[in-house]
Structures are given as structure tokens and as C-alpha cells.
Design a protein around this nucleic acid. Structure first.
Length: 331
DNA sequence: CCGCAGACATGACACGTTTC
DNA sequence: GAAACGTGTCATGTCTGCGG
């Protein structure tokens, strides 16, 4: 399997007034890519400018960043042709790799705008090299700028940043620098097209956690009522577990619970509600085993939310409530 | 019935980080 | 500038139980 390291440059409305802005907030103006083989050795490259059809002026911040002028883009080819060439160049057996989670979403949005065939019916597995860098060299959570990672790894900066090809090139260098093959197993999913039915749902086991991306539901209540969403299952035993800490939410967007498995210990589930473009919702649930200490920390976090809540009630008199601690009603 | 709180919900922000 | 994501705080609500 090859690695296709993809980077896009895009432009946006300079006024924010264009009616197209709702359909196409970002217009892709350049595609750059590097192909690595199975051994992560560079075997091919792709670089193409795109002649814009929507935004005829370069946004001032964009132009400052990518050092490109509209006149240069006139030499570009139409988006549809460039994408066709690009996908042909990609070949058959590959996985997309990008710096950060945005590029595949914007690529698909542009494809849809031009009425082209979608890359996929549902979610697309890809490697977010920005995330892999964090897993390999930092705390798994931080997200660094590409140049930061290049400096950290002492990769020679022989071409300027912020052009599609050069950023794809540097991203490929960072990917190739990651030694531990286990890190590459941390695949991400672009959910521009969420799963529409049970069969399309994503269930993946990673080294230290399990990820579930649900099909879409009409609303949040329906999503939280679903058995698969609300369950706390040991992903090693495949058994449903009894909850020690029931579902609670410190902020209304994330939900947590802790269950206990006789064989594997405390299992923490974290559920995030995501909105789709057409107003539906889907759920991303991750499960991981935690230590008894971390279990205590989570309980404290719940109780802290409770305390903050009641404290604000007291100090504010008849006034407003604070963030509650169990915003959901997952059973 | 009213007033008062606590518990439970939820949306609107602000901040900090990244992408272009 | 605009968008996305995570985190946290603030400003609104509703529901329920208790005492009067």
C-alpha cells in the first residue's frame, strides 16, 4: 500500500458577501502531493495549480500566507481536470495522509460543489501526520504547526513553506521520520460523509483505545437513546459492562462514563456529539482502560462540576444556574 | 398556592491552537 | 479573515421536592 501525502491551498471570499460562501467557503487553488511506497520511500510527486472560478480576488491574509497572486493562478487548470489527474496519479492501493484534519473535508466539499463523484460514500480512513507526530514525540494531544515539527526533527528546510507541494513534501518527511510502526496504526477518519446505516458504522480497535463512529440520528436525544451509543462494552471481552460511574457531562458536549471489567479493569467511555451539515447528528465514542487513580480523577471532575454548579446557585442568589453535571440522559 | 433551592439541561460565548 | 476542535465559563431555562 502506498501513502499519498496530500496538501491543498485554498482561497476564500475577501468580503464574506458572496452568495457562494455558504456552499463553498474555501476554494481550492492548488494541489500538491507526494507518493511514498510501503517502505515510506518517495516514488512520485504531484503539483498543480487550479484556475479559480468562484473567488476572483485573493483574500489579503491568504495572499500574505501563501505568497501567490491571482495572475499566477490564471496558468492553472480547471479544478475538475486537476482532480481527475490527481486521482489517476494516486493509483489503486493507497491511504491519504495530511497535516491536520481539514484537507480531505475541503477536497470533498469542492468535489461536491463541482458535481463530481464523491471520494467515498461514508467516512474515509486517513493518517493525520500532525496527530501521529504528537503521538510519536509529544503527548498525543498537542497539535503543532508543520514548521515546528520540521525544526524538531531537524529536517532541512530547503524549500519555502505554505505551498501545496512543499508542505506535502515536509509532511512526507515527518511521516517518514516516525520510526515506530505502531504509531502508523493510529488511523483517523474524515467524516464529511457520516455512516448512514449500521453496516457503515466504524468500529476500530487501537493499541490503547477503541473508536466507534455511529450512523446518523435525527437529533441528539435519539442518538443518546441508542443502545449501541449508550452501552459500555469491554472491547477485549466483547461483553457489556456494568457502569461504576454513570454517564455525565462537565460541559454539555462531551459525555463520560466508567464501567468495570473483571478481567481488564476500569473502562472509560467518552462520547462526543457531532453535527452533520444537514442538521443531523452522529456520535464518536472512544473507550479506553484507565487506572483506579484516573477513575478517581474523573469522579472528582464530576463532583467539581457539581460543586461549581451549586456554588454559583448560592452566590448568584435567585440567579442563573451553572453548568450541570449530567447534561445527557444516556441510560 | 407560593417561594426557595438543588439538580438537571442547554445555548452562547471566550480562549487557545491549528489550517488556508 | 473563516473554519474546526477542545476547553472552560456564563446566562438562560425547566423540573422537583420541601417548607410555609
Amino acid at each position: 500500500m502506498n501513502y499519498i501525502i496530500l496538501d491543498l491551498e485554498w482561497n476564500q471570499s475577501s468580503t464574506g458577501q458572496e452568495p457562494e460562501a455558504a456552499k463553498l467557503p474555501f476554494e481550492i487553488i492548488e494541489i500538491g502531493a507526494i507518493k511514498l511506497n510501503q517502505e515510506r520511500v518517495m516514488v512520485s510527486e504531484f503539483s498543480q495549480l487550479i484556475r479559480p472560478t468562484v473567488y476572483r480576488r485573493m483574500h489579503r491574509i491568504t495572499s500574505k500566507l501563501i505568497h501567490m497572486r491571482m495572475e499566477e493562478l490564471e496558468r492553472g487548470k480547471p479544478f475538475t481536470q486537476v482532480v481527475e489527474d490527481f486521482l489517476r496519479w494516486c493509483g489503486e492501493d493507497y491511504i491519504f495522509c495530511t497535516w491536520g484534519p481539514l484537507d480531505l473535508t475541503e477536497l470533498q466539499r469542492n468535489l461536491r460543489y463541482y458535481g463530481m463523484a464523491p471520494l467515498s460514500r461514508g467516512p474515509i480512513a486517513f493518517l493525520d501526520v500532525q496527530k501521529l507526530f504528537s503521538i510519536a514525540y509529544e503527548d498525543r494531544k498537542s497539535r503543532r504547526a508543520l514548521e515546528w515539527a520540521v525544526d524538531y526533527l531537524e529536517i532541512k528546510k530547503d524549500i519555502p513553506f505554505h505551498r501545496a507541494f512543499s508542505d506535502a513534501y515536509y509532511t512526507a518527511r515527518v511521516l517518514a521520520a516516525i520510526r515506530d510502526p505502531e504509531v502508523l496504526k493510529n488511523v483517523s477518519y474524515d467524516v464529511f460523509n457520516p455512516p448512514l446505516c449500521r453496516e457503515e458504522e466504524i468500529k476500530v480497535q487501537f493499541d490503547t483505545y477503541f473508536k466507534y463512529i455511529s450512523r446518523t440520528f435525527p437529533d441528539k436525544t435519539a442518538a443518546l437513546a441508542d443502545r449501541e451509543v449508550s452501552s459500555s462494552k469491554c472491547y477485549l471481552c466483547r461483553r457489556n459492562l456494568r457502569k461504576k460511574v454513570k454517564w455525565f457531562s462537565p460541559n454539555g458536549r462531551h459525555y463520560y462514563c466508567v464501567a468495570y471489567c473483571d478481567k481488564h479493569g476500569f473502562l472509560k467511555c467518552k462520547t462526543r456529539i457531532r453535527k452533520t451539515e444537514d442538521g443531523k447528528v452522529y456520535v464518536v465514542k472512544t473507550s479506553r482502560f484507565i487506572s483506579p487513580e484516573d477513575m478517581e480523577k474523573l469522579v472528582e471532575r464530576r463532583d467539581h462540576a457539581r460543586k461549581m454548579h451549586s456554588h454559583s446557585r448560592k452566590t448568584a442568589g435567585k440567579g442563573p444556574d451553572k453548568a450541570g453535571q449530567t447534561r445527557g440522559s444516556i441510560s
